[in-house]
Design a protein around this nucleic acid. Sequence first.
DNA 1: GCTGAAATCGCCTAACG
DNA 2: CGTTAGGCGATTTCAGC
Lengths: 166, 166
Amino acid sequence: MAQHRLDEIDRKILAELQADGRMTNVELAKRVGISAPPCLRRVRVLEEQGFIRGYHADVDSRALGFEVQVFVMVGLQSQAEADLSAFEARCRAWSLVRECHMLNGEVDFILKCVAPDLSTFQSFLTGDLLTAPNVASVKTSLVIRGAKDEPGVPFDILEERLSRSA
Amino acid sequence: MAQHRLDEIDRKILAELQADGRMTNVELAKRVGISAPPCLRRVRVLEEQGFIRGYHADVDSRALGFEVQVFVMVGLQSQAEADLSAFEARCRAWSLVRECHMLNGEVDFILKCVAPDLSTFQSFLTGDLLTAPNVASVKTSLVIRGAKDEPGVPFDILEERLSRSA
DNA sequence: GCTGAAATCGCCTAACG
DNA sequence: CGTTAGGCGATTTCAGC
């Protein structure tokens, strides 16, 4: 991915599309202050260069019947690269695991899981995760309530940072 | 929000828009097997009833210069409702905190944070989070590498579940 | 080179059956 | 829910800075 340096218009485009991914191109062009054709070209470039990975509808998981959200801390017996990769591949295959991040410190991975109910999650826990090879320790934390869940990145910090270095 | 029961077409629409939020309505209609106008009507209803909360471009945080991602476990001194709410409100105001979830167990909250570099995060940690009222304990875990980060919900589990109960 | 203007094409989105 | 139809946005082409 060629790190084609972004100008202010590019960053505005990214911020606008992060806030509303279904905005029409003419609306987007108006907001960033250029006409539609160059705006669309910039969007295409941002997509091709990987700055925009995709567009997703933000679906309300609770309304759809996913009542349970759980963070799972996982420790492995072996931290050899092959074993780490094997565990990551397993997580990618489990659809109820939405996120898997490798951490520093005492715990090796944190998983964010979603399930329709507790029994579905429990059967995943005992039937899949705990029986997976190389898993040494598992600690689960149920989400009691969500206070904030913003997708994407804080563009205000980026702008603040750029103005400081200008 | 009137829980207008979703049929199979509605669920397909949600799954498709979660996978590609910028899909045109005619493409969406083709995929779910109906013509464009009723498809658009369904989408509008799903938006109005809150099943679709919004649409967002998935921006690559690393490409944009956000090199640091951290999970923060926070314990509070008082778990009185007013104090919990106050902490949540503070998290919502911190733009580098992208997620804040209240948990069961020994730790009260988990935060997912994003920052351009470690020093930016450290100054948030010492300057904002640790000095906030009612904060008793803070434990941070840096993300070494991301293995999976899927937005949204697993529709395959939903369909599997519905077919079992049919 | 990149932007803007014009023109074409396709989509969105009413109204009606 | 489908069809029709009019208006608007998307997207290419081309000229100008």
